[in-house]
Amino acid sequence: LEEPPEHRAPKPLLSGAVPIEQFLATLQKHGITEVKVEDTPDGHILHLQDEDTLIQLEEDSTHIICDNNEMLRATLRDLVLRFLQKF
């Protein structure tokens, strides 16, 4: 296991929103096709059925809830980041 990360790494802020339709299309391009979408008062919950993963999308927040599958998590993270600006 690598050394713990340095204490004072830069902490970038994110801005923007993740558009649901475009995000679903992006997921599909990456082979994630079995997605159940549920509407909530503030946005949507995406259930990635084959991956047993939930993504809660709201206007100003995204929450990715998954098993400890680092590769999948990193992929989903990068797909979400495509729609956001980093500061």
């Binding site: 994110l14 100003d60 927040s61 995204t62 809830i65 998954c66």
Partner: peptide, 23 residues
């Protein structure tokens, strides 16, 4: 500061959060 920059540009922050289940 990044927080100040976002505010001055009239942008709002987007919170990205992860929860991992580890068995």
């Amino acid at each position: 500061a990044p927080e100040q920059a976002l505010k001055e540009l009239g942008l709002s922050e987007h919170q990205l959060r992860f929860t991992c289940r580890v068995q």
